[in-house]
Amino acid sequence: MGRDGKCERFERLIVPHLDAAYDLARWLVRDPAVAQEAVQEAYLRAYRFFDSFHGGDGRAWVLAIVRNACFTALDREPPRATFEAFDEECHADTPNGLPPPEEVAMAREAQALVRDAVAGLPEEFREAIVLRELHGLSYKEIAAVTDAPIGTVMSRLARGRTALARRLGAPERKK
């Protein structure tokens, strides 16, 4: 692959995911300046290792690199994929009492509430929720980005959602 061919492919397959990359970084490092730095590093790394990208899902490929760069920026190891069993219990106790979606959507306050709730999640739940809800990644894609088995992805989503429902649902129920 010639250098110009590599540039062209990189521009076409990887650069378009910059918005998603920045957004994921923002949610992971929780600081816009650090997020920008991490994304720059990630894109440089992605370009250097672009020869190892053999087609397929460019978004999942680059988001995985962004995620690693974020944990490097935070000076931490990424959360380990533990082989936890799919936890049925956490499905069973999702609290009820959420307001109807249209009310939530309209209320700015509620938006801030959701953002805070997501920002407050432990990072392995936070990244799964952000990849799923904000970027619409499938379980398989999330598994690829976070280097975790699909069962772990499902369990993290379920537990993240249970925690969110608790945070978002509880104030409503008190009224």
Partner: peptide
């Protein structure tokens, strides 16, 4: 409802 609420609450910010 949770998905709808989270979907409405999270807005993507362009790079």
């Amino acid at each position: 409802r949770l998905r709808a609420a989270v979907g409405a609450g999270l807005t993507a910010e362009p790079a």
